[in-house]
């Protein structure tokens, strides 16, 4: 199968951004004061650095997304092949079992308060 159209499309899309930035680089005025290069923090001197530790909730969100995403991706082929299938009752039983386990997993996450952001 041909990837060529995709390559052409991405190269053109990429060059749009590149060209625009280049033009503004050529046309734009150059900054004259050093202060402009400081870290922006609403005009104050910055407090601490950006590479600090952030909340574990973000990690939890990402990994739970990964797990549920994999489960839902499993359902894509199921949904696409159901109508042409010859054994619909079996397919339905598979689906219901799958969803049952998924919902049990979801309820576990919910009841363990992992989804709570307010503290």
């Amino acid at each position: 199968m041909s990837l060529f159209p995709f390559v052409v499309f991405s190269v053109i899309s990429l060059s749009i951004g590149l060209v625009l930035i280049l033009i503004s680089n050529i046309l734009g005025t150059k900054p004259k004061t050093k202060r402009l290069h400081d870290i922006y923090e609403s005009g104050m001197d910055p407090v601490g650095s950006a590479t600090k530790r952030y909340d574990i909730k973000f990690y939890l969100t990402a990994i739970l997304f990964l797990l549920f995403d994999v489960e839902i991706v499993f359902l894509f082929p199921w949904a696409l092949s159901y109508q042409s299938s010859s054994i619909k009752p079996l397919m339905l039983a598979e689906f219901v079992f799958f969803m049952f386990v998924l919902i049990v997993g979801y309820l576990f996450v919910l009841l363990s308060k992992s989804l709570d952001w307010e503290e």
């Binding site: 939890l60 739970l64 797990l67 489960e71 799958f98 386990v101 049990v104 997993g105 996450v109």
Partner: peptide, 12 residues
């Protein structure tokens, strides 16, 4: 799916 359930529990 059971494997993924196990993974969910572990993550929590």
């Amino acid at each position: 799916t059971l494997l993924l359930l196990g993974a969910t529990v572990a993550v929590v």
